[in-house]
Design a binder for these strands. Structure first.
Length: 542
RNA sequence: GCGCCCGUAGCUCAAUUGGAUAGAGCAUCAGCCUUCUAAGCUGGGGGUCGGUGGUUCGAGUCCACCCGGGCGUACCA
């Protein structure tokens, strides 16, 4: 629908005002009297043209050539809005379009042939995923879905590190639990990983090896087993909410492949690094950032910045058109350095989109659950999925803007009732399926022959809503804002439920019933497709 | 101190490049099932959009300052 109005307005504007920069946008007005789509173009040209916006609007309308079978009327309203009204027969015809395209409806080819890489989760295998990781995971996977829907071919990537201090501590934590299980009077350090899963691993190793590991170092079998177990756990949790990464990139490989040294040499060649206090610094202040930062510590060990830069270079070299990083807000200080470094090396950083989501506050029993990995005081993503279900978890994260400091109400998530917003859409879908079953028993079939009969307010509103789905997917995908799809689907479900209460199907005259069945099919298609974008299932019964 | 994010109905959150009367869910109150799923529908109450100035035809949205909260601000990741 936006396509068509854009198509008819653009030539009219170019003809009238060839030398003026125009920003043409269309809104969906709240008020029914304001048409199906509306543009403020005349208001926005007001200043440049120094003319009354209503006069400008009148001139534009006069210049627009349109098909009267599609557009019923174009009106000037208020201070100078131009409102477009579609004909009800055109609106009705979108029902057929939707059903014809089926599971493909809503997809766009705008970015066909382009490749995107979405890197998300990327938690090191030191413990189970928490609710916080859940937001990152859902956000990343849904962003990836959206990109696929607008044409990209997408790789989902997980960047991890199984070396370094954290992992040594993990291994040693298991070793301590192992020795404790063997009966050794050994104290468990307070800053070690306190989680139950560590104890279980220690015990498991006792069952498997008896006391044979007593003199093993932390970094051998203890660390390896811990890492393996953690990763299995993480992958299992992700799979439960429908997430599978196609690439697992080990930070360690950047060292073994010499990528780190390469980058280091490059900085040196370009004169962008220098030594001070036995450390190597990057001249970020010369690259427009606030201050220089250490990239190699005086111990000879790189800081996280260096491998991060090397990793992004690797991604760049894999020739993606779009690179997406999903971070929690605790990382918001790290990416400007990486971006500045990449830019200095000639990489086009406009290809990188960094999505930073804010933290999740978890509440249970009306109280905030304080998360602490070290104290093992957290709710794991796994527990949450088991208790609330994958659909609820995915929908809860997807319904909020990533900028919102969202609250995750565990009690609400667990409720299998109308208080839980996910079911509103799923129920609409199940209802439609139920109608389909009933129609089949009655030998009623959907038909596109008499779509013009879909003329009640409820029918028209539902169809108009369904017709906007492709616009929403495109907007949401380009802006990387999954919550818009969620919000849209709530409106779709609402429009359907209203239609359902007002418009009977089975008892209606056959032609009306057939047309309404076609509309039901279209609504089912949109709801199912929309939920698929969000990674939520569409149940046939509830 | 500085940087990013947030402050909107009792609660959780929307509000499409600055647009028309600021919306939805939950909660609350009043109605609606002998007919396709009541996990639904209809209606009511509930707001100085944190505050004060400014920009303009128009500001929840942009700018300045202030108040309050989250996350950062490492030779941790």
């Amino acid at each position: 629908m936006r396509n068509y109005v854009t198509l008819i307005c653009t030539p009219a504007l170019d003809e009238l005002y060839p030398d003026i920069e125009k920003k043409l946008f269309f809104d969906t007005p709240q008020n029914d009297g304001h048409g199906h789509l509306s543009t403020n173009i005349a208001l926005s040209l007001n200043k440049q043209l120094k003319k009354n916006p209503r006069e400008i609007a009148a001139a534009i309308i006069a210049a627009i050539k349109y098909d009267p079978a599609i557009i019923e009327k174009i009106e000037i309203a208020g201070p100078g809005f131009i409102n477009f009204f579609f004909t009800s027969s055109y609106i009705a015809s979108t029902v057929k379009t939707i059903c014809d395209e089926g599971t493909e409806y809503g997809k766009s080819h705008k970015y066909s042939g382009k490749r995107a890489n979405v890197e998300f989760v990327s938690a090191n295998p030191t413990g189970p995923l928490t609710v916080g990781h859940g937001r990152n995971a859902v956000c990343g996977d849904t962003a990836a879905n959206l990109l696929e829907w607008i044409g990209y071919s997408v790789d989902r990537e997980y960047y991890f590190n199984n070396a370094g201090r954290q992992m040594r501590v993990l291994g040693d934590s298991v070793r301590h639990r192992y020795l404790q299980k063997l009966g050794d009077a050994i104290e468990f350090p307070a800053d070690y990983y306190q989680g139950e899963y560590i104890t279980e691993l220690g015990e498991l190793l006792v069952t498997e090896y008896g006391d044979k590991l007593r003199n093993e170092p932390a970094e051998g079998v203890f660390k390896d087993r811990a890492e393996q177990a953690m990763f299995e756990d993480i992958k299992k949790s992700l799979k439960k909410i429908g997430i599978e990464h196609s690439v697992f990139f080990n930070e360690n490989s950047l060292y073994t492949d010499g990528k780190i040294t390469e980058v280091l040499n490059l900085f040196k060649e370009k004169g962008l690094s220098y030594e001070k206090d036995d450390a190597i610094w990057l001249k970020l202040s010369e690259l427009g950032n606030e201050q220089d930062k250490v990239i190699v510590k005086s111990t000879g060990e790189p800081t996280y910045r260096l491998p991060d830069i090397a990793y992004h270079i690797d991604k760049f070299n894999r020739n993606y058109d779009l690179l997406i990083d999903i971070f929690g807000s605790d990382h918001n200080a790290t990416y400007p350095d990486v971006m500045a470094a990449l830019k200095s090396m000639g990489y086009d950083t406009s290809k990188v989109a960094v999505l930073i989501h804010q933290f999740v506050t978890v509440t249970q029993g009306g109280e905030v659950v304080k998360m602490s990995t070290r104290k093992a005081n957290y709710i794991t993503l796994d527990e949450l999925i088991d208790e609330a279900g994958s659909d609820v978890v995915r929908f809860f994260f997807n319904m909020r803007s990533i900028n919102s400091h969202m609250n995750f109400d565990v009690d609400l998530a667990k409720k299998q009732s109308d208080e839980n917003p996910v079911f509103y859409m799923q129920y609409a879908h199940a209802r439609i399926c139920s109608i389909m079953r009933m129609a089949e028993e009655q030998k009623l079939e959907a038909s596109f022959e008499n779509l013009a009969l879909l003329s009640t307010k409820e029918e028209q509103k539902l169809i108009i809503n369904l017709g906007f789905f492709p616009d929403i997917v495109l907007q949401s995908g380009e802006a990387l804002e999954p919550h818009k799809v969620a919000g849209y689907l709530m409106e779709t479900a609402e429009a359907f439920h209203r239609f359902y209460t007002q418009c009977r199907i089975i008892q209606s005259p056959p032609q009306v019933a057939s047309a309404r069945l076609a509309l039901c099919l279209a609504a089912k298609t949109v709801i199912a497709n929309g939920l698929r974008v969000l990674g939520v299932s569409s149940p046939e019964r509830m």
